[in-house]
Simulated assay, not measured.
Amino acid sequence: MSRLLLRCLLLCCLALVAGCPKSASKGTALEELQYAYSAAVRWGDFEGAWNLVDPKVREAHPLTDIDFSRYKQVQISGYRDLGGTTLGNGEVVRDIEIGVVNRHTLAERTVRYRERWRYDAAAKTWWLVGGLPDLWDER
């Protein structure tokens, strides 16, 4: 699939979520956004996934074209939800295992990542608080 088509699909998903009736539960909206986010990451659409990051985080820590070009050097081979926890402060965390293949060496490795989602009552949506996964962290 082309990146343009993937972005269009992601935007359609976001539009559907935004257009959901107000009776939809916050949990359902979160699941739909998490699905859209995981699909964007699995397909390598990190620009699309970046749109689901909290605007305050995007403003404080903007990504450059060089940052996005680093994501183009990898292929995602797997995205597995390892479970999550609801925190008492309107946040949800979810542990993720991502399979990453370096496009140049074809070496595959696994990266663990913790997503942190925050509900924004004013915008009536969930935002990813931690930013995009660091696929190069050598911890």
Rank of each mutant, 00 (worst) to 15 (best):
residue 63 L to R: 03
residue 2 S to M: 11
residue 137 D to Q: 12
residue 17 V to M: 11
residue 64 T to N: 01
residue 20 C to G: 13
residue 130 G to W: 08
residue 46 F to T: 01
residue 127 W to T: 02
residue 2 S to Q: 11
residue 55 P to Y: 00
residue 93 V to T: 14
residue 47 E to R: 13
residue 41 V to D: 09
residue 91 E to F: 11
residue 111 V to F: 00
residue 4 L to N: 10
residue 1 M to H: 11
residue 16 L to Y: 08
residue 107 A to I: 09
residue 50 W to Q: 00
residue 53 V to R: 03
residue 21 P to F: 05
residue 117 W to G: 05
residue 52 L to S: 12
residue 89 N to Q: 12
residue 78 G to M: 08
residue 120 D to E: 11
residue 64 T to I: 03
residue 82 L to S: 04
residue 42 R to T: 15
residue 49 A to F: 00
residue 32 E to N: 06
residue 4 L to Q: 13
residue 89 N to R: 07
residue 90 G to N: 10
residue 128 L to H: 02
residue 40 A to E: 07
residue 65 D to P: 03
residue 123 A to S: 03
residue 33 L to T: 00
residue 46 F to E: 04
residue 49 A to R: 00
residue 121 A to C: 02
residue 33 L to V: 01
residue 66 I to A: 09
residue 104 H to R: 13
residue 118 R to G: 14
residue 32 E to A: 13
residue 118 R to W: 12
residue 52 L to R: 09
residue 56 K to L: 07
residue 18 A to F: 12
residue 15 A to P: 02
residue 96 I to Y: 04
residue 81 D to G: 01
residue 133 P to T: 02
residue 3 R to N: 13
residue 91 E to V: 08
residue 85 T to C: 04
residue 122 A to I: 14
residue 93 V to Q: 12
residue 37 Y to E: 01
residue 41 V to M: 12
residue 56 K to N: 05
residue 13 C to V: 12
residue 129 V to P: 07
residue 37 Y to V: 01
residue 11 L to P: 09
residue 110 T to A: 10
